[in-house]
Write a protein that binds this DNA or RNA. Structure first.
Length: 374
RNA sequence: GGUGGGGUGACCGAGUGGCUAAUGGUAGCAGACUGUAAAUCUGCCGGGCUUACGCCCUACGUAGGUUCGAAUCCUACCCCCACCA
């Protein structure tokens, strides 16, 4: 249980197998985000059909609705959602960042004004851990303090140091609550864009181990892409080889490949479903605006190279029509494609790492994506 | 035939002497979105010229008129709607 085995490497890119209570995840892998216990707009069968091996849920959102006790009473997160494969719950740490303005941070924890009904809710390292233990995903995340990408050194240091102190509390509570083998807790590296802080965060985190996996948080929150890549490069040699690395909240297709090249094994991102709902689809030649005039009347598949339901069934002109008339089917179909696109990108990267062709393939893939096809 | 109301940019619809190339919507076009407060948000939206500040044309049913100045006031005409005969 909670084993990770690196099967092959190419440069710093890795292919591996992560064993979890509800199944094994072949990495690199993209994890669709199901904040409220649903990958927005998609059924569990839809998500299974994309080849996704593991999905996320969110502590803060599931705590508000329906409440972790309700989830437990219904048999836990897997039974609740009918998703029987591995799951991970995010701790609510990201909401410290995304709900800035609705929250107040102290050493004790974070006081949120619920975005649903305005009531005051407090999340602490202990309660976030308890909620996640009750929800019962395979992996729980430590409650961290995320700061913006442009955060100055002092603020980044404060967030990073607090995250370490909170990690001790999460770990302590998790040890008390969770039966060995039922759920694992992963820590999160912070430190903003500051190399020394990142290294300090990684070392401090590893000292507090052992861990079955480690996450890199606080990236893709407003900093330039080269900065994110530099942080990953700085961190790579510091992280133990036999530990899965999860880059939180990333990303767009190129970000996946750039991350994989720098040693990342797991990703999650809302962009696949959000962009899908907003009418942007990813294809090998870049992005496509589904509502765009050029798609009117087109009988081409969205992505001729894709094997998803959307691309093998509906022409572009029809997908555009669904967005124009604002039918919910359009949101589902494009979300479905985008999720499949990222999942497949992970699958392709994996097979190229195993075959020793990752670097060339990746370079060509990125060139084509950025060139924007005909 | 009479009385009353009305004709505004692709559409709906404000405006009733200067701040009006004309409020708002809709449609259209373009863009953004990275551990989900998002089926959301932003920009453009008469034509031409200019890198830009800006400039020039055309425009509020039609034609005339009043005025320094009119979508807004006056006259005639055309058309639409309601009610009465």
């Amino acid at each position: 249980m909670f084993e990770f085995r690196v099967e092959a490497t190419q440069g710093t890119a890795r292919a591996g197998l992560l064993s979890l209570p509800h199944g094994t995840v072949r990495t690199p892998a993209f994890m669709p985000v199901g904040t409220h216990g649903v990958v927005r707009g998609l059924s569990a069968a839809d998500v299974r059909g994309t080849g996704a091996q593991i999905i996320l849920g969110n502590t803060y959102h599931l705590h508000l609705r329906p409440g972790e006790d309700t989830v437990r009473a219904m048999g836990g997160l897997h039974r609740f959602t009918t998703w029987d494969r591995p799951m991970l719950t995010d701790s609510g740490g990201f909401q410290v960042f995304s709900l800035a303005g609705l929250r107040r941070i102290s050493e004790h924890g974070v006081e949120f004004q619920s975005h649903v009904d305005g009531t005051l809710r407090t999340l602490t390292p202990e309660s976030a851990t308890e909620i996640q233990a009750t929800l019962g995903a395979d992996i729980a995340m430590a409650f961290d303090h995320v700061v913006p990408g442009q955060a100055p050194h002092d603020l980044a240091r404060e967030g990073m140091e607090r995250t370490l102190r909170w990690l001790d509390r999460c770990k302590g509570r998790h040890g008390e609550l969770v039966t060995e083998g039922a759920q694992t807790l992963w820590p999160i590296i912070q430190g903003g864009t500051h190399a020394a802080l990142r290294r300090q965060s990684a070392e401090g985190t590893l000292e507090r181990g052992p861990w079955t996996g480690i996450a890199i948080g606080g990236l893709s929150v407003g900093e330039p892409k080269p900065v994110m890549q530099r942080v990953l490069e700085d961190l790579e040699p510091v992280l133990p080889r036999e530990m899965p690395r999860y880059l939180m909240g990333v990303g767009f297709p190129p970000d996946l490949l750039e991350g994989i090249a720098r040693g990342v094994d797991l990703f999650d991102c809302v962009a696949a479903t959000r962009n899908g709902r907003h009418g942007t689809a990813w294809v090998p030649t870049g992005r496509i605006n589904i509502r765009g005039a050029p798609l009117k009347g087109s009988t081409e598949p969205l992505d001729p190279e894709c094997d998803c339901e959307t691309c093998t069934t509906y022409p572009r002109g029809y997908l555009r029509h669904l967005f124009v008339v604002q039918d919910i089917l359009g949101l589902r179909l494009v979300s479905l494609h985008n999720v499949r696109f990222l999942v497949r990108l992970g699958e392709q990267a994996r097979s190229h790492i195993l075959g020793g062709t990752f670097e060339d393939w990746s370079r060509e893939w990125l060139r084509r994506y950025h060139t924007r096809g005909q």
